[in-house]
Design a protein around this nucleic acid. Structure first.
Lengths: 158, 158
DNA sequence: GGACGATAGTTGTTTAGACGAATATATTAG
DNA sequence: CTAATATATTCGTCTAAACAACTATCGTCC
């Protein structure tokens, strides 16, 4: 009868709920570290993502192909690319074969920006997760893959 | 020389990075399920969170006390509460002891809304995570706690 | 080869989030 | 008791996200 725990306010209705809220909270904590980092370099995580995708691609990509490769969906690719283009990190040109498509490529300046960030980005990731050992990190990665697997479209690369 | 894997574009610089991007991606997938759910009930996850917090509290809470209990920080509590008040799910009144503070409480209608949602919310969480067994869910919850532990303020209830 | 539906991208609008300044009240120092 | 400082909340503004409507081009079917 006694002995309600202090935080009786936080009780979970199910293990599934607890897991989801833990995921939310944990992501929120790590994200704030990430955001602070990218702010120093004057771009958003998603913008950096686009640069990485273009860097990883041999040839220019059409706008919408980039969207499908992003970590989280961005409904507003055009305006996002506008900003990257303003900064001269990417270049766009209309495709000759299919004049509907706009091909996007990374510029030399864009490459430089990514490589300039590389070291401190790694350091940031260590700050986020370096306190876990390799074994825990691997378990985490595996569990997360199992969590999202049913929600990934067939050929998704996730 | 042959045999680059198809998705050579996705390579991780470190295990930490892989873990973080996995977390991001996984959260994004589950969040989209959650958002679709809450949209049907015409409120945002954060708004629901506020209702839950108020429900869990015996007595009315000052505005800023709510902020510290949220899953992710909401810098704009006032306007969020405005919306909940419009819907008559919460009530606000200025505190007598400290006239700077605004005390927030849940209304009968607010309670009803939360309890009406209860069953289908549980179902939603099963959709998100029901495909994992209890053992995996528990490992996940534990690992996530370990991940965010250094970033939680001392008395945070997380 | 012209109409039709599909596809690629852009633009407009509404809404929520970030950030800083402003207001009202409380607390403390002298 | 008055000034100075701190606290709780709100308001104004600017930026980013969500969603829908629009334009241009393509592919295909008679």
């Amino acid at each position: 009868m006694a002995d309600q725990t202090i935080q009786s306010a936080r009780r979970f209705d199910s293990l599934e709920q607890e897991a989801y809220l833990s995921l939310w909270r944990t992501y929120d904590r790590l994200k704030s570290i990430e955001e602070a980092f990218f702010q120093k370099w004057n771009l958003t995580p998603q913008q950096y993502n686009v640069l990485r995708i273009l860097l990883g691609s041999e040839s220019p990509l059409p706008t919408l192909a980039i969207a499908t490769k992003l970590v989280s969906r961005a409904p507003d690719i055009t305006r996002m690319l506008d900003k990257l283009e303003q900064e001269k990190w990417i270049a766009r040109s209309r495709s000759e074969e299919d004049r509907r498509a706009v091909m996007v490529s990374i510029t030399a300046e864009g490459r430089k920006r990514v490589s300039d960030m590389s070291d401190s980005l790694e350091e940031m990731h260590r700050e986020q997760l370096g306190h876990l050992g390799a074994k825990d990190l691997r378990s985490l990665v595996d569990l997360l893959a199992k969590v999202r697997q049913p929600f990934e479209p067939p050929g998704s690369s996730w």
